[in-house]
């Protein structure tokens, strides 16, 4: 993905990830520089280093592991072996999941396992998916498989290198993987955000957001959900509604109970 911000070089894919993250955390799309400093959330990224990584790390407990260019199954294990299961409020996975050979369910399970109840998984996949040309890209990873993703060769994404992508029906597969990992139905972000330079149909990435459900208080087998996170989501929505209803320059004094 080409840098497209003339100031910091952020690509369209990165801006789309930030948009999805901001919506998930705050209920509206904000620039990272407008995220509150000291926000009590813990996040991790599997992303190339860049200004978005630095910006998030300056505002909350955020760490990042660059994805390896020749990623193979086990990458999440290696990158995140230090991470505590169920410890993250959010995980950003930037163009990594598609590089796993089938069965990819394990990659989703590993990623979800790092999330606490109510936390979000934000991930980008290449938007362009097609069958590989003979001798192209993914040949050395090509393998026959009889798992749920069907037999046959793996497609590649047409990008330079050896990235693998999902076969046809990728959206349905992603939804199935996420559901099997226990996630709520995901959101595939297709909307335009013109103020941040994000067109509605762009060719660089699919950005998804999925949330791990809060534990039910009726289920003693589940660890309790994080009350703060839930309350924040509610107050963020309430605050947004108040802001939309209020006259310009009005001040909201309190959104407490």
């Amino acid at each position: 993905d080409q840098p497209s911000c003339g100031q910091c070089g952020a690509s369209l894919r990165v801006r789309s990830l930030v948009h999805a993250l901001s919506l998930a955390l705050f209920g509206r799309s904000m620039a990272i520089v407008d995220f509150p400093v000291g926000w009590p959330m813990k996040g991790h990224g599997l992303s190339e280093p860049g200004p978005h990584v630095d910006g998030l790390a300056a505002r909350m407990d955020f760490s990042n592991s660059p994805p390896l260019p020749e990623s193979v199954p086990g990458l999440l294990n290696r990158e995140l072996e230090q991470a505590k299961p169920g410890s993250l409020d959010f995980l950003i996975v930037d163009d990594v999941l598609e590089q796993f050979a089938p069965p990819r369910q394990s990659a989703f399970n590993q990623a979800v396992g790092l999330l606490r109840p109510g936390a979000v998984l934000i991930f980008a996949l290449p938007a362009e998916m097609r069958e590989p040309e003979p001798g192209e890209g993914a040949d050395r990873f090509r393998q026959k498989t009889e798992n749920e993703e069907g037999p046959g060769d793996l497609p590649c994404n047409g990008a330079p290198g050896a990235s693998l992508t999902m076969p046809e029906g990728v959206e349905a597969q992603i939804r199935r993987h996420l559901a099997a990992a226990g996630m709520q139905p995901p959101r595939l972000h297709k909307e335009a955000v013109p103020e941040f330079g994000i067109p509605s149909h762009h060719g660089s990435a699919q950005v998804w957001a999925a949330r791990r459900p809060l534990a039910s208080p009726q289920d003693p087998a589940e660890e309790g959900g994080d009350v703060f996170f839930d309350q924040h989501s509610r107050y963020a929505s309430l605050g947004r509604i108040l802001c939309e209803l209020a006259e310009a320059e009005a001040t909201v004094l309190d959104v407490g109970s």
């Binding site: 497209s4 911000c5 003339g6 100031q7 910091c8 952020a10 369209l12 990165v14 801006r15 930030v18 948009h19 901001s22 799309s29 904000m30 620039a31 990272i32 520089v33 407008d34 860049g50 200004p51 978005h52 910006g55 955000v193 013109p194 103020e195 941040f196 330079g197 994000i198 067109p199």
Partner: peptide
Amino acid sequence: RHEFRCNVCGEASGSA
């Protein structure tokens, strides 16, 4: 050329 504000650095930029 399309002007926009970058949501990473917060600066005005162009050409999405």
